[in-house]
Amino acid sequence: MTTTAPLATQDDRVASRPLAARLLSRPEVGSLVAAVVIFLLFMAVAEPFRNVANIGTILYGASTIGIMAVPVALLMIGGEFDLSAGVAVTTAGLSGALLAWNFGLNVWVGVLLSLVLAVAIGAFNGWLLLRTGLPSFLVTLGTFFILQGVNLGVTRLATGNVASAGISDMDGFASAHAVFASQVTIGPINFKITILYWLVLTLIGAYVLLRTRIGNWIFAVGGDAAAARAVGVPVRSTKVGLFMAVGFCAWLSGMHLLFQFNTVQSGEGVGKEFIFIIAAVIGGCLLTGGYGSVVGASIGALIFGMAQLGINYAGWNPDWFRTFLGVMLLLATIVNLYVKRRADLR
């Protein structure tokens, strides 16, 4: 018998990678670097930014974006977009207010009906996407315009106005306000309850993505849906579930809007969907799906919170906020790409 080389030898061409390279190849690195840079920038140029009491305000701004950035990031990792996410928040807030006010119900009934509606909108997006096979960009662009029109039209029909009527004197308002819009003061800092929701959602999102079977499926349906289906991953339910998660978080955001301001402007929310997507992309999510991070998206939201107020505190004209966003988006994606390439080469 002739001798053959043993099969299971270690391939000596492959050396193990250094720890630093492995850390740097994580998707959230770019956003973390950006967050530190922006923090230092505003610490240097904006005096009020250094005031401890303003931490609460900054975190509040970040949390309103972060609550949506988490499910939007998961959806993007799952390979889909949701352009209707911004106006869906307004739809949720409006429906809760209008239903309760028009039928004279306890506001909690409005809150629950609004939850059903918001999750149903998400499910509809997912169902239509899978049913038609159209790209999610088109499907949700459609629902974006539909919801925008419905928000304005229904509100005007119901109230003759462009905003929902105030509901602060209705049954259950006080308890709902406590759940969705309360705040606690610790020392000089006011913490809004949305900050808690944001952190909890981030933790749950990151846990689900990295430590559960569903997270594995989310990566797979975004990375290669055909491959995922072939090995038995329920692609359809995973995607519909992700859209429903966006719907759920839109409801949570909408309820905060409603109980914070007691009324909802029907034209609000347009343009917000891009901010959620940008936060997710800054956090390392690929537009093509299959890669990204929930923690990164939350850091992306934090960058927004800092920038939004930092520009104000620095005394710059807030007109420049959008320009700043665009520059941030480009820089963060370039840094992500660069860091990833360097780390993969090592």
Partner: peptide, 30 residues
């Protein structure tokens, strides 16, 4: 399959167990 049904950006072990993940504990953690 010819195209192997592997998700390219997922790690080797995640691909190996894709669709048949091992779970443990009350929370069904991977």
């Amino acid at each position: 399959y010819q195209d192997l049904a592997l998700a390219p950006l997922m790690s080797v072990w995640r691909n190996f167990f894709l669709g048949n993940e091992l779970r443990k504990g009350f929370l069904k953690t991977l």
